[in-house]
Design a protein around this nucleic acid. Structure first.
Lengths: 406, 406
DNA sequence: CGATATTGTACGCAGAACGAACAATATCGC
DNA sequence: GCGATATTGTTCGTTCTGCGTACAATATCG
């Protein structure tokens, strides 16, 4: 039950039903392909004539294509329909603290090439570097299809409307007009998005087909910081000032360790990779000190995970403590939002069999309802490149999204 | 950008544009009345002919009515349109731990009568008592209009679909089919809802007209428990198992005081009325002990607030500590969801001038962004009867809601 | 080889948006 | 006082499009 916003509603016109049904067909084909026209008519409870007309429109726009006629037990054999994704290309970009990742993929997020280079933190220089690499990449794969846009994922708050990065502490960016800069440099449309939200979008649009993706879920990313992409009622939560999902800074223990944000006892101060590392090193977390120490020791979170698996007690205990605190944080999410699923991304996903029981234990101890305590927690390894897949979705999804109405 | 759910979509038919535009007109009149047909045509960017046709339909259904023709500086004088709410009645019911409140109101939530009686915790007996009182109430006000339904608000988790109260700890209810029982006993349609969500709905539909109600806000209720009604993208968050909004049980301090839920250091264990009272009494919070103690002493939270305002130091400090912890909890909400506003309901709203600075201080200390730290926190006194207004909305709002589509 | 089943297309009807013309009702300039 | 102008609300013909029916195409089965 939604209230109509009387200041910015979208009224219906004569072509509204057509737009809606066209989009439904497109999505049905996308998720249940191959489908014949008759299949669509049955699923939509509509005449086959109507389907013919709408499918012709989609075929004309080359949004879908007709495959081979297929065998049937009786009667005329149907011609199957498929969405056209293979030759519609997207550039996905994932800017991270140390490295920037670049991917050329199709509309389904299947990668054609991937590149990686050291992040240039100056925005103008980064745009130049990106534009040159993108030009090269597209030139090398001209035959694969036409590139329809660029999806740029940054570790920070973004404003979709203006295309600006509002604040990205890891890169030292504040109010940078990245979308227009990159768009001007490449001549391609650019979409920008915050990393955890991009991961959530990737799950929403590219998550396991067949099984149904719920309309309420949360994607928690644990890396240098801790963030969340929240999906409620099938839509992403951006917040009124684009800062929703800063999940790392909910309080866990008000007189806990000092957090890099300046506050105290934030979830992030217990469970971020930096927190785990400083716990392992027996060192207090601090903005300058910890990074310096890590740079000197050359130690990464993957090392600690490896040592833990190899049986080193100190590493094991550092990881386990992180898991316990993460479980407490997830319990808070479950009590507050009751999502159908929680995805956990980041390096900790590679040690899942070790940490999962501890996370679950903390959840069971703190979640009010038994249904909530059983919420599936699903790890997503970095090898799936969720951020880059999310970047691709930024460009591809608007084609398939429901029309905004009323 | 919403993804279409390919399993339960709603396809458009020939009458879909009409349904949508009809509903937009209804809402425009509701929120900006009085409006003429020509006003509507301008606001909707549509021909006046179309408006005539749609308005005739609404007039036929008696959803709106035509008022007097009004003066204009030039030309033909317009006939103004108004929504019909005065003679469409609703029974609102608010079941609480000790008392149950009953209200007969119109579709705008304006009360005609209010009653109050001691809560009967046995569901069957309560239904009998309610049915008898409702029958009497409607008989006494037959001339005021027709009653179109009952809105029932309970302190616990509810399932809209089946009309069952899943769990209401204060009443000791578990899986009780309240909707059907009350509907059978009264012959009226019944809607049930959880208390904080009902308060949020009341704000959404009946909040200050003129000023625009944001599409993202949170209503936090602080009474015996602490709960939240969350509104995101203009829709209420119910959660995948109907348990969203249990905000009282997010962790504040993992080795804090024991909470009645069995866990430790929940927000509720710091800021509920029971927590404040036991802090004032210098007593530890416990499920049986605290209630017993309060029953013996006869002390209520309003007493403590009164003593605090009168200058009693121990009361002042108990209230102030509650305010500080509440601020930390609200900071967590702001970091996680970034709502445009937060409403705070419950007895603490009556001491707002005392607690507001402390709440704000805690928020400023813990919220990441300056925009977030400035989030308006708005108290709503119990005298506004938010739960009962929410109950009325449960029945009235579906008439005005946007049609579900795609 | 006709009966039956199924897919996809063609076509006529009807519902509704759209736009233009028109009737109703007022003020203003002269 | 009267025509020019402005504004509101209605009517009506056009056009788009959903919807149902009929039909063509294509296959299997008895």
């Amino acid at each position: 039950m939604r209230k109509i916003d009387t200041r910015r509603f979208v009224r219906a016109t004569r072509s509204t039903p057509r737009d809606i049904n066209r989009q439904i067909i497109l999505n049905l084909v996308r998720e249940h392909q191959p489908l014949s026209r008759a299949d669509l008519a049955r699923r939509m409870d509509i005449g086959r004539g109507m389907i013919t007309s709408l499918v012709d429109e989609l075929l004309g726009e080359e949004a879908i294509y007709e495959g081979a006629t297929v065998d049937a037990p009786r009667g005329r054999k149907p011609k199957m329909l498929y969405v056209r994704t293979r030759d519609r290309l997207v550039i996905g970009i994932d800017v991270r603290f140390s490295s920037t990742y670049l991917m050329l993929s199709d509309f389904s997020g299947n990668p054609l090439v991937m590149e990686q280079f050291d992040t240039v933190t100056d925005p103008a220089e980064l745009v130049t570097e990106l534009a040159s690499r993108i030009g090269q990449m597209l030139a090398n794969h001209q035959s694969a299809g036409r590139c329809e846009g660029i999806g740029l994922v940054v570790p920070g708050m973004t404003d979709q409307r203006t295309g600006r990065v509002l604040f990205a502490p890891q890169l030292g960016w504040r109010d940078v007009a990245m979308r227009d800069a990159l768009s001007d440099a490449t001549g391609l449309p650019v979409q920008i998005e915050n990393a955890p939200i991009a991961c959530a979008l990737a799950q929403m649009w590219l998550g396991q087909r067949g099984a149904d993706m719920p309309t309420d879920f949360v994607y928690v990313t644990v890396s240098d910081g801790v963030g969340a992409g929240i999906v409620v009622n099938g839509e992403v939560v951006r917040g009124s000032a684009y800062s929703a999902g800063e999940f790392g800074h909910i309080p866990l223990s008000i007189d806990g360790p000092r957090c890099l944000c300046g506050s105290q006892g934030c979830l992030e101060a217990f469970t971020s990779n930096l927190a785990t590392l400083s716990r392992y090193l027996g060192h207090e977390l601090s903005a300058t000190g910890t990074r310096k120490l890590l740079l000197e020791s050359g130690l990464t979170i993957m090392d600690v995970i490896a040592r833990s698996r190899a049986g080193e007690e100190r590493a094991r205990s550092a990881i386990h403590e992180t898991a316990r605190y993460l479980g407490i944080g997830l319990a808070g999410i479950i009590n507050a939002l009751n999502p159908a699923r929680i995805f956990v991304g980041g390096e900790i996903a590679t040690a899942w069999s070790d940490v999962e029981p501890l996370i679950r234990e903390a959840i069971v101890a703190r979640v009010l309802t038994s249904a909530g305590a059983a919420t599936p927690i699903i790890p997503e390894p970095a090898s799936d490149h969720p951020r880059l897949r999310g970047a691709a979705v930024l460009v591809a999804a608007p084609t398939f999204a429901a029309p905004r109405l009323a």
